[in-house]
Amino acid sequence: MKGLNLGIVGLCLLFSNPALSGDINAGEARYAQNCGNCHGPAGMGLASYPKLKGKEIPYLIDRLNTYRAGTKIGPNSDLMIMMAQPLSDVEIANLAAYLNAQK
C-alpha cells in the first residue's frame, strides 16, 4: 500500500512538471515562429520535410534534444541543429505536446 502511494505521488510529480507534460497552446505559438515554414501547417509535412503531427511525445522530445546537442540524424541535420539550439526544455516539451495533439 505504501509503495502504491509513493507511485501515485511520483506520477503526480511527473505530470505536474511542465517540462514533461507540455503546453499545447504555447507549443503552437512556438511552432508558428519557425517550424511551420518547412514542416507546414500543424506539422503536416511539406516537400522533403517530414510529417510531425501525431508523433509520440518521447520521440519528438528525443529528436529535438538530439539536435539541440548538435548530433546529426538524417540529411537535414544542419538545419535542425540550428533551429533546435535556442530551444529550452519547456519549449521542447510544448512543441512535442502540440505536435502530438495534431491528428
Binding site: 522533403s48 540529411p75 544542419d78
Partner: peptide, 10 residues
Amino acid sequence: ESDHPFGGPG
C-alpha cells in the same frame, strides 16, 4: 545523402 544542408538524396 551527403554532408550538406538539404543533403538528402534527390
